[in-house]
Structure formats: C-alpha cells, structure tokens
C-alpha cells in the first residue's frame, strides 16, 4: 500500500477498499490541513475544514476521472471547503453582531497529550524546519521571521526594512517556496 501512487490508491478506494483511502488521508492530511490553515488562519477552523475536505473527497471518489493529479483534486476540494467555511463565518459574524472580533485569529487549541512517538515526530519536524529556515538567505529569512514570529504586517515590514511593499510580498513568497522545497528534500518520517 505504501508503494502505490496516489492515483492507484484512488482506484483501489473507488473499488471499495477502505485502507486505500486511509492511506490517501495519511499522506495528505497534514498538507491539506496546512492549506486550510493558510486560508482560514485558525487552527480549529482548519481542522474542521480538513475533516470536511476528506469526507467530501470520499463521497466524490467516483467523480475523479484521473485528468488531474490527486493532489490538485484534493486541493480544489479543500479550497472550496474553506471558501464555504469563510462564507459561513461571515454570515455568522453578521448575525451575531461581530462578536468574534478576530482576536482569536492566531489562537490554537490546546495540543492533546500525544504519545512519546508523536512527540518525537514533532521534535524531529521542528528541527528540520529550523534547519531549513536557517539555510535561507538572510534577506528571505528576516522577512519570514518578521511575519511569522513578530506578526508584523507587510506595511510594517516595508517600513522597517525600507523596501517597497511589493518587494516584501515577493520575498516572502520566494522564502516560503524555497522553504517548501527544502522540506520536501528532507521529509520527516511520519509515524
């Protein structure tokens, strides 16, 4: 099962093989969760959207015709699910007079008590990310640190570094793309 490609796993899942779809979920769970987190900005909302994404994918396995990659198919489902979630949140905030002021935008739920194996995986992953960020060029690394660690806006970074706003965005985009490539080269063994 581990040696099969995504498309082969989908074919097995369409043939009523629950383990095949389970393998798809295991391979793409974190990436889809990251995509949902990137779109929604909240960890709990991202978890719900990720859950809904895989449920929708399982229900629509028969519609997958192999014209696109599985990753793109899952990404599309996740994006649509996140857009639905955002529209629902917008309607809810209007109904309840904006009781959610966005102060919990970056809040995350308390991490459950993981097993030692999962804690070891998390520790290994953070070490990999640390090394990847450290390997970035200085001008790209400082933008990531300002944005993620200091939570500065693009305009504040532009004023601090005295560079144009468009340069800040392009630097951050390049930094994240390079970081993604470095992480792909050193994948963490998911337990």
């Amino acid at each position: 099962m581990l040696n099969l490609t995504d498309e082969e796993l989908v074919e097995k899942a369409v043939g009523s093989d629950p383990e095949a779809f389970g393998e798809i979920v295991r391979r793409w769970e974190r990436k889809i969760f990251a995509l949902c987190f990137g779109m929604l900005g909240r960890e709990d909302d991202a978890r719900d959207a990720c859950q809904e994404t895989f449920i929708a994918a399982y229900r629509n396995l028969s519609r997958f015709r192999g014209e696109a990659k599985v990753s793109s198919w899952l990404h599309r489902i996740a994006v649509n699910q996140c857009l639905t979630t955002k529209r629902r949140q917008k309607t809810r905030s209007e109904d309840f007079l904006n009781d959610d002021d966005g102060s919990e935008e970056r809040a995350f739920v308390a991490a459950p008590h993981h097993s030692p194996a999962i804690r070891a995986e998390v520790s290994e992953r953070t070490a990999v990310v640390r090394q990847a960020v450290k390997a970035l060029p200085a001008d790209l690394r400082e933008v990531i640190v300002m944005k993620e660690f200091e939570e500065m806006t693009f305009q504040e970074i532009s004023d601090t570094l005295e560079i144009p706003l468009s340069t800040v965005k392009s630097r951050l985009y390049t930094a994240l793309k390079q970081l993604r490539m470095k992480l792909e080269r050193t994948p963490v063994e998911i337990l």
């Binding site: 990753s71 998390v122 990310v129 993620e148 994240l176 793309k177 993604r180």
Partner: peptide, 22 residues
C-alpha cells in the same frame, strides 16, 4: 491552487515550529 497549497504548507511548518519551540 497547488501553489497556494505549497506556500501554505511551508507557512504552517513555520507556524508549527514557532508554536512548539517558541
């Protein structure tokens, strides 16, 4: 969409690193 997913994953890894270590 794929590009957005790749950038989102890199961002989430950074976010997770910050959450765990900092």
């Amino acid at each position: 969409t794929d590009d957005f997913a790749a950038v989102s994953l890199a961002r989430f890894e950074t976010y997770d690193w910050k959450r765990v270590e900092f």
